[in-house]
């Protein structure tokens, strides 16, 4: 496939189309308005269904219907809209329905602002809605990666019958880079559980309601074993110069890309420093990070928030002697490499 110049929204949308997405529903919200605009055109060209929904609540419930009917489906939004979707995501998880949700996160709480933020980490990785559930969370740092991650998200969603989140931010949504689009997927997994009319088979039903005593608990145990399988198989992370380094910077998404520049600079000046970057935020690469921290004396966690992923770093570092420091910019603040470099030097 030929290279294209795309922003993060367009790159993600193209990833979805390559993955065979047949249904998109969304509601405009900055910084990802380009997403529904682009999708409206592309779905028409591609023979898929595009609906501008009346709200994010409706978008996510349309996804419920599309997934129930056995089709690959997605929505995109930004933080306040994703908050509105949480009930629906919980239903998707409870009914074991595959769907892809892209969050181009922005500053909060409340209406916040429209600039990039990573303050939806807790919401993304801890379920977000009600009930004991998890969603797989992929955190890309470039336009190529959000393209690839979106494509992958559809496969993971189908494989585990679970909603998958792609967590970008306003920076990724609006920056343009070259992207090599993936070829269009041709073969898809069968969905014998889907609702498409009971011709030649027994009726199917989808539900998350289990009133008989013990049945809901059993359903939760079944879901738990699925999530255990995901934790075993789907962890993704990257480390740069982490082997035996005594100073490790931990960061994800676009913030990790910025931090990488600061780490490179510190290394050029002779610092013994590496960067660890979780790519799946759930499942979190606890063991992989713990391995990197074996010889570490210092850890600097850098986030575009008041510190949310740092909780997972503490969990990963529970057997480590390293001292853990934090540098964060909440409310839409974006650090530049100099700033992180100075912070590295200070600690």
């Amino acid at each position: 496939m030929r290279l294209k110049i795309l922003n993060g929204c367009e790159a993600s949308a193209e990833g979805a189309i390559s993955a065979g997405c047949a249904f998109y529903a969304g509601y405009p919200i900055t910084p990802q308005n380009r997403f529904p605009e682009y999708m409206s055109e592309r779905m028409e060209q591609d023979g898929g269904v595009f609906i501008q929904a009346e709200s994010e609540t409706s978008s996510i419930n349309m996804l419920f219907g599309a997934a129930a009917a056995g089709f690959r489906c997605m929505t995109s939004s930004s933080s306040p809209g994703i908050s509105l979707m949480q009930e629906g995501i919980s239903y998707l998880a409870g009914c074991e329905l595959p769907a892809v949700i892209v969050n181009m996160a922005r500053g909060g709480p409340g209406l916040g602002d429209v600039t990039p933020s990573q303050s939806d980490y807790f919401q993304s990785t801890r379920g977000g809605g009600h009930g004991d559930y998890r969603t797989i969370v992929l955190a890309p740092w470039s336009c190529q990666e959000i393209h690839d991650h979106t494509y992958l998200a559809f496969d993971l969603a189908d494989k585990y019958r679970n909603p998958v989140l792609v967590l970008g931010d306003g920076l990724l949504a609006q920056m343009y880079e070259t992207v090599r689009p993936k070829a269009k997927k041709k073969r898809f997994p069968k969905k014998p559980w889907a609702l498409d009319g009971c011709s030649g088979r027994k009726p199917n039903s989808l539900k998350s309601l289990f009133l008989t005593p013990g049945v809901l608990e059993a359903h939760n145990w079944k879901l738990a074993s699925k999530w255990a399988r995901i934790e075993k198989r789907e962890i993704r992370c990257e480390s740069y110069y982490c082997r035996n380094s005594n100073y490790i910077v931990v960061s994800f998404g676009t913030c990790a890309r910025i931090a990488k520049e600061a780490v490179e600079r510190a290394r050029q000046e002779g610092a013994d420093i590496g960067l660890f970057r979780p790519v799946t935020l759930w499942p979190f690469p606890y063991a992989q990070l713990a391995e990197c921290l074996k010889n570490a004396k210092k850890v600097l966690v850098v986030e575009m928030s008041l510190g949310q992923m740092i909780d997972d770093v503490y969990l990963a570092a529970r057997n480590s002697d390293a001292r853990i420091f934090f540098y964060g910019r909440p409310g839409g603040g974006v650090p530049d490499p100099d700033e992180i470099y100075r912070e590295i030097k200070k600690k």
Binding site: A25, S58, F64, A68, L195, G197, C198, L209
Partner: peptide, 21 residues
Amino acid sequence: FDVTEAAHGRAPAVATAIKRL
């Protein structure tokens, strides 16, 4: 026959997608 649940009040959104597809 085939029946799904929907979140409280959201059946028309669910039906919209099923019927369109």
